[in-house]
């Protein structure tokens, strides 16, 4: 396995401590993220996903616990957390609401400029980020406010990619997009990961998306880390997930039910393609 890039140790976050609205959003969560892996994060609404990922790039200071980026405690006294945020890029939920510049190009350049890069490098990164997110060159000079919802979302994601983060965290990046827009954005993210050999953390409600992309899955319930294992293993525990109010990919569920009915030779699958391959193998090859 490759090297650990981010490490969380005993993270706790309590909101509104000492008020009647006190709420433990994240409770004693520890895990490690490796270079060049794709991790899915799933959990019911309010399970603490957004809180957890905002701790990972130093936006929220954990009430208790420590976060290490490449072995360094990010809340140590002299640690440069602005630098951390360019290394651990966080795409918020509905990121299009953070757009503010006159042109798409300038908005994407906001991050790299804040990093203090020279203009040449900034321009290069903007171009690359637009390429990664599938934004055509013609949009450079457009106002981000006149774009369609899906395009706005891409501009916002490009704004993070332009900082070339080593860890890219996306909080429900496909919420509210049409199926085509969803799969395109996920394909963009995968391409970024492959080319930069970066770590990707994807928070999503779509189990299909997580199953299709992630190699490991982290499950949160009421602020507690319930599972962290390979995608196969996690979705094979469908019963438990459903008890937490979570879904599993439909095809995985079908196979689980078939197995429960006595088809014990069927494995657990994550995608329709995989399912077809299994069925072919079981029935002895394709159509007669």
């Amino acid at each position: 396995m490759s090297e650990v890039i981010l490490k969380a140790e005993g993270l706790v976050e309590v909101y509104g401590a000492g008020t009647p609205f006190e709420k433990t959003a994240v409770n004693n969560v520890s895990f490690e993220l490796y270079e060049n892996e794709f991790v899915g994060v799933i959990g019911h609404t309010g399970s603490g996903k957004s809180t957890l990922i905002q701790m990972l790039n130093g936006l929220i200071k954990p009430t208790e616990g420590t976060i290490y980026f490449r072995g360094e405690d990010v809340w140590a006294k002299k640690y440069d957390r602005r630098m951390l945020r360019s290394n651990v890029g966080l795409v918020f939920q509905y990121p299009e609401y953070q757009l503010f510049e006159e042109t798409v190009e300038k908005d994407i350049a906001f991050g790299p400029r804040n990093m203090g890069l020279n203009e040449e490098e900034v321009a290069l990164r903007v171009e690359q980020a637009m390429h990664f997110t599938g934004l055509s060159d013609k949009l450079r000079e457009s106002s981000p406010f006149e774009l369609s919802g899906g395009q706005k979302r891409r501009v916002a994601i490009a704004g993070i990619l332009a900082m070339r983060p080593r860890v890219l965290i996306l909080d429900e990046p496909t919420a509210g997009l049409d199926p085509k827009g969803c799969s395109e954005i996920l394909a963009n993210v995968r391409e970024y990961q492959r080319e930069e050999r970066a770590t990707v953390v994807l928070v999503s409600h779509s189990m299909e998306d997580v199953a299709a992309n992630a190699s490991r899955v982290l499950v949160l319930e009421k602020g507690n880390l319930k599972m962290l294992a390979s995608t196969q293993e996690v979705f094979a525990r469908g019963e438990e997930l459903m008890k937490m109010g979570l879904n599993i990919p439909q095809i995985t569920r079908i196979f689980l039910q078939l197995r429960a009915r006595g088809h014990e030779n069927l494995p657990s699958v994550l995608s329709p393609e995989e399912a077809i391959r299994c069925l072919d193998a079981v029935t002895g090859g394709g159509r007669k």
């Binding site: 602005r82 945020r85 966080l90 918020f92 953070q98 906001f110 991050g111 804040n114």
Partner: peptide
């Protein structure tokens, strides 16, 4: 927070 995440 979103702008801070972009280094603001």
């Amino acid at each position: 927070n979103a702008q801070k995440a972009r280094g603001a």
